[in-house]
Amino acid sequence: MNAIEAVGLGRRFGAVAALDGVDLAVPAGSVLGLLGHNGAGKSTLVHVLATLLRPTSGTARVAGHDVVRQAARVRRSIGVTGQQATLDLTMSGRDNLLLVARLLGAGRRQARARADHLLDLFGLAAAADRPARTYSGGMRRRLDLAATLVRRPEVLFLDEPGTGLDPVSRLDLWDMVRQLTGTGTTVVLTTQHLEEADRLADAIVVLAGGRIIASGSPADLKARVGRRTATVQLSTDPDADAAETALRRADLRPVRDGRTLTTALTRDSDLTAVVRALDAAAVEPDRLTVAEPGLDEVYLALTARTEAR
């Protein structure tokens, strides 16, 4: 079953199409990573799916309900953490969590227990009774996440969740996302951290100018766009010279930097060809490494392509 389905989803702001004909199908329990530059439409898409914005064209269903006609039903099943903290900063962290829990239907005692658990979990227990305005940026982000996780959302939207978090908190967050998907929650996360998308997402959608310009699993995208490279490290200059000549003769177009040679592996047989050429030239490399393409490259290649259009 799909937790999110969108068909031809669009949102205009005056003459600007912030979202332009987006189709999505996100299976329940999976993580969708939304990638794109600032202004690509990631946040607009999240806002439309989270019922904060009405689409101007197309339809979308979240947790089985239409985001326009059944917005109230959708709100019963989702959790949203946006780019800005959505809290009452004059209240303490605890009171913020209590308010959310009470509004969701927790009794007084239940709300208290839940707030305690979350404050503990997010490392906010010591600051629980201080006004949230005295919190650091990272603490606010964590409180915001805690408020979103007062109950288990069926679909969780995380708009750039890693922003403002220290590396440890970010790893904790990734961890938590995996635990959530383990319980069946579907997660949509927008990010500019490609590593974040690479590690968490089952599927990635790359947006530019409000349109989907690429989608697939992280591995798919890398295979489609990126190139593997082989790097050969030699111990002496004569060896490096010999290796360079050998690789060039084998049509592998090495790029030399001191005693390091890098060559793009465009065909499947290229890696073997590198090894054979080195063997034939009787050079013994210090090190031979093969690098898989990063999502960075994929992303840059894809977005550069759309900009060139």
């Binding site: 829990a101 969701l104 658990h117 007062v150």
Partner: peptide, 16 residues
């Protein structure tokens, strides 16, 4: 030890 994200009795909380 606090890592475990659990949802306790929050299962039925979907508004008032």
């Amino acid at each position: 030890d606090a890592r475990g994200l659990s949802f306790g009795e929050s299962g039925g909380w979907c508004g008032i």
